[in-house]
């Protein structure tokens, strides 16, 4: 039986690193989405307080933008 342990370890390191990078990138993009959403919430809230007349329109906008659930 040839000694090929090193290649096996290398192979799994590379494979799991790639898989980890894939999952990591998805997680990272979720996080940055959450950050942007928080910022948008803030901005929308400040806009509501500054312009009371447009309150109804901005409040409804978040509801109408809802994505069809999947």
């Amino acid at each position: 039986m040839p000694d090929t342990l090193d290649y096996m370890i290398l192979g799994y390191i590379v494979a799991f690193t790639l898989l980890g990078l894939l999952i990591g990138s998805i997680v990272w993009r979720y996080r940055s989405c959450a950050k942007t959403e928080a910022l948008l919430d803030q901005l929308e809230a400040s806009e509501q307080t500054s312009a009371a007349s447009t309150t109804s329109s901005t409040a409804s906008s978040t509801a109408t933008n809802a994505v069809p659930s999947r």
Partner: peptide, 10 residues
């Protein structure tokens, strides 16, 4: 595996 050794697990 007998002929390939550990690397076959890849």
């Amino acid at each position: 595996e007998r002929t390939q050794g550990e690397v076959q697990r890849i």
